[in-house]
């Protein structure tokens, strides 16, 4: 019994201290994974804020955009041309979703809209496999001038490896979040967007076109998805199993709150780092694979104590 308690409460920490460079490595891996979770969550938040839709298809949008990019390249389209065409595809997707789904479901209960996005997920899976095939593809990292290879850092005789693509992913993610922040704060469209997020009816009455805003937001989420798809694809190939991993954005949102961009980032990092640490240091106790559920269980426990998320406001119910 004491052995067991030791292996839970003391052992893992002793391991951490014994090999600090390994701990660094784990933290870094978790951090990068967290950045990518945060990016997927960001796509969710954008759409949720502007249209109140809980877009279950965000995960498959990541896969779909990555797949389109690689698929086009494999068909002989030059890499950057393929990137532009993929952006075009994401715009068409945003436009069609607004025109054929959202517009028709205005004023329906949230749960109906949510289920519609599950339907959308099915459509995108089918289309993606139909057009580009279901097999795993390699991301065209070098062709997009993204760095490959790695650097080694040796603090006090230890060894920490930084993949260059991970560093690039972090930088690009930060740039994109800052860019989105500027876009929302300082442009006309951004202001309109925030107005819509606050109150649909009121923004309609001051002449903001909801339909237009929705297209923009879905397109923005599409761009975020594409970037995520490229980065994730570069780290571990483009495949449909990514869609399941992308679901981890949901616990991230639970931690961060559904409407908060900073929340998405902080939540993403907590989940990313937390699950890596747990998997590496506590995982062996349970048999490996705890990464699969750790995020959800943390979210579940968190929900019981703080249902509104880290950054959300307490909800006062009215009748």
């Amino acid at each position: 019994m004491t052995d067991f308690l030791y292996s839970i409460f003391v052992g893992p920490f002793a391991d951490m201290i014994a090999l600090p460079d390994f701990l660094m490595q784990v933290l870094w891996e978790g951090f990068v994974a967290g950045v990518l979770y945060a990016l997927i969550a960001l796509g969710f938040v954008l759409i949720f804020k502007a249209s109140g839709v809980f877009n279950f298809a965000q995960g498959i949008m990541v896969v779909f955009s990555g797949l389109t990019l690689v698929g086009l390249y494999e068909l002989g389209v030059p890499a950057f041309m393929a990137l532009i065409i993929t952006l075009g595809v994401m715009y068409v997707l945003a436009f069609s979703v607004e025109r054929f789904v959202l517009r028709k479901l205005v004023n329906q209960p949230d749960i109906i809209l949510f289920m519609a996005t599950i339907g959308l997920t099915n459509i995108l899976i089918g289309l993606g496999q139909w057009i580009f095939g279901g097999e795993t593809k390699t991301m065209i990292t070098e062709q997009l001038w993204l760095p490959t290879g790695s650097s080694v850092w040796e603090p006090n005789g230890g060894l920490v490896i930084f993949q260059h693509i991970d560093i690039a992913a972090t930088v690009i993610a930060v740039l994109m979040i800052v860019g989105l922040g500027f876009f929302f704060s300082y442009t006309k469209v951004g202001r309109a967007l925030r107005a819509v997020a606050d109150d649909h009816q009121a923004s309609l009455s001051v002449g903001i076109s909801l339909n237009q805003i929705w297209v923009i937001v879905w397109f923005a989420a599409g761009i975020v998805a594409l970037v995520t798809g490229i980065m994730w694809g570069a780290r571990s190939d483009v495949s449909f199993s990514l869609q399941i991993i992308a679901l981890k954005a949901l616990p991230v949102l639970v931690l961060g709150g559904f409407t908060s961009i900073p929340g998405a980032i902080v939540g993403g990092l907590i989940i990313g780092i937390g699950e890596k640490i747990f998997e590496i240091y506590w995982g062996p106790l349970f048999g490996s694979g705890v990464e699969g559920w750790f995020a959800y269980v943390i979210a579940l426990i968190f929900l019981l104590f703080r249902p509104q998320g880290l950054f959300g406001d307490k909800i006062i119910e009215r009748v």
Binding site: D110, F114, L250, F258, Y296, V297, L300
Partner: peptide, 28 residues
């Protein structure tokens, strides 16, 4: 049980927790 405190999309996350945790149990 979480449905007593949370609603809607939050509950989706709770049921996903069940899904992935139980799947893991079936293997481990």
């Amino acid at each position: 049980l979480p449905s007593l405190r949370i609603k809607g999309f939050y509950l989706v996350v709770a049921t996903l927790a069940a899904q992935f945790f139980l799947e893991w149990c079936f293997i481990r």
